[in-house]
Amino acid sequence: MESAILRSVNYNAYFGDNHVCKDVNISIPKNEVVAVMGPSGCGKTTFLRGINRMHELIPNATAKGQIFLNDEDVMEMHPIFVRLKIGMVFQRPNPFPNLSIYDNVIAGYKLNGIKLPKAERDRIVEHSLTRVALWKEVKDSLNKKGSFLSGGQQQRLCIARAVAMEPEVLLFDEPTSALDPISTSTVEELFHELKKNYTLIIVTHNMQQAARVSDRTAFFYMGELVEFDDTKQMFTNPRDVRTQNYITGRFS
């Protein structure tokens, strides 16, 4: 693909002797929403966590292969630089409970010891919170602790925290599975907004969600990348029989 921002070449991931990602080759174009779906235990979350080198934080976890971010191999880079360029949002909202809403948004700078002038900080906080459609709701309570927000608001706060670092790619690990339907739709609307500036990779259990929000979909099965195609194409006319079986609900 001509404008691939992220490209993996023969990526393999292991937990001890357990081979969870098998020779994954994928090219993800810039400014698109890519959904990664597949049954439980198919390696999709492991692949996602491999992209920003979070995988190796787990004891016994190892990885082989290459992942290129703009032609730079993230496996060769220091994980800290990788994670500054590739943001991540988790399954459960995890704002820092000891920090205020304001400090949570700016956490990537504040906790990394990056000093910014007050005006710049204010601008980043307002900008990031506006991006995730949270500014209006919290602008009068920026000094309250982030953990007082509702689940959906907390998740948007976590997205704002990732967005504040101006990464190139944003990874979402089942970002709505702990949220109620209304919060889920708010977050899904955000994806359309965010893809103007970032490339989004979203792991999801929910096929409808994949169909709703993504431009392209990747289907993982038993650690393999079975199919990666245009979302419409994939849901209407899958090439692989395993994809077809999964989409039609023969197994899950």
Binding site: M54, F90, F96, N112, R161, A162
Partner: peptide, 9 residues
Amino acid sequence: LREAAYALG
């Protein structure tokens, strides 16, 4: 909590 921190680099 640790993951949130590590993910911010």
